[in-house]
């Protein structure tokens, strides 16, 4: 699946900004870079959720930069899904 650079979300409190792009040449897998106001307590959970959501959408190779301002799981899933749809052009909601 072709991955283009795409963005979803905002930097508002309670939201998360997801920036997705193609994996670096030669790299495989999902590289999730997370900056979060709740990193100490929820960093692991959030990274797993981002990677898990992308895999469910069939994205196995990508670079993700996530800037989190304390978003809940439902918000994170929605933003990651929106970024993935914008990135791949494949509408998962139909």
């Amino acid at each position: 699946m072709e991955i283009k650079n795409a963005v979803a979300g905002t930097l508002e409190s309670g939201d998360i900004l997801i920036q997705i792009g193609p994996a670096k040449p030669g790299d495989t897998g999902l590289a999730v870079d997370l900056e979060s106001s709740v990193a100490a307590q929820f960093g692991k959970q959030i990274k797993e959720l981002i990677a898990g959501t992308l895999k469910e959408l069939g994205i196995e190779n990508a670079v993700v930069k996530a800037t989190d301002k304390g978003a809940l799981d439902c918000t994170i899933r929605a933003r990651v899904t929106a970024a993935a749809v914008r990135s791949t052009g494949k509408d998962v909601w139909k």
């Binding site: 709740v38 100490a40 307590q41 929820f42 960093g43 692991k44 959970q45 809940l72 799981d73």
Partner: peptide
């Protein structure tokens, strides 16, 4: 139930 169980602080 909404946020999960937080990890212990370092």
């Amino acid at each position: 139930s909404i946020i999960g169980t937080p990890d212990a602080l370092p």
